[in-house]
Amino acid sequence: MKVQYINPFLESASTVIQQFCNVSVTQGEVVQRELTFHVDHTWIRIGMTGQFEGDVIFGLHNEVALKIVSAMMGGFPVSEMDEMGKSAISELGNMISGNASTLLYNQGMTIDITPPEIVQNYEMFSSKGSEALSVPLNLSEMGRMEIQVIVAK
Rank of each mutant, 00 (worst) to 15 (best):
R33T: 04
M1N: 08
A13C: 11
M145I: 02
I17Y: 07
A88P: 04
G47N: 00
N7V: 13
L60N: 01
Q51N: 11
Q32M: 08
V56C: 05
T36E: 06
E80F: 15
M73T: 15
M81Q: 10
V135E: 00
G98L: 06
M1Q: 08
E141S: 15
R144W: 02
A88W: 02
S70N: 12
Y5Q: 13
F9K: 04
S79R: 14
S101V: 12
I147G: 05
G129M: 08
K2Y: 11
P136F: 05
E91A: 03
Q4I: 14
E63L: 14
Q32N: 11
K128Y: 08
A65W: 04
S12I: 04
I113Y: 04
L104C: 09
E63I: 13
P116N: 02
T26L: 14
L35I: 00
I46G: 03
N99G: 15
V56H: 02
M109F: 12
S97I: 02
S101D: 06
T36G: 03
E117Q: 01
Q107D: 15
M95L: 09
P115V: 06
M84A: 12
H41A: 05
G74N: 03
M73F: 07
Q4P: 11
L104M: 03
C21N: 07
Q120L: 07
T36V: 06
V16Y: 07
I118W: 01
N138Q: 14
S130D: 05
V151G: 07
G54V: 04
L133I: 02
M81F: 14
V64Q: 05
A152I: 13
L92P: 02
V56G: 04
V151M: 07
N94C: 03
F76A: 13
I57T: 01
S101W: 11
G74S: 04
D82E: 14
L60Q: 01
V30A: 06
D82S: 10
K2M: 10
T36D: 10
M95T: 04
V3W: 09
N22M: 13
W43H: 10
Q120G: 11
N121T: 07
G85I: 01
G74F: 03
I68S: 02
H41M: 03
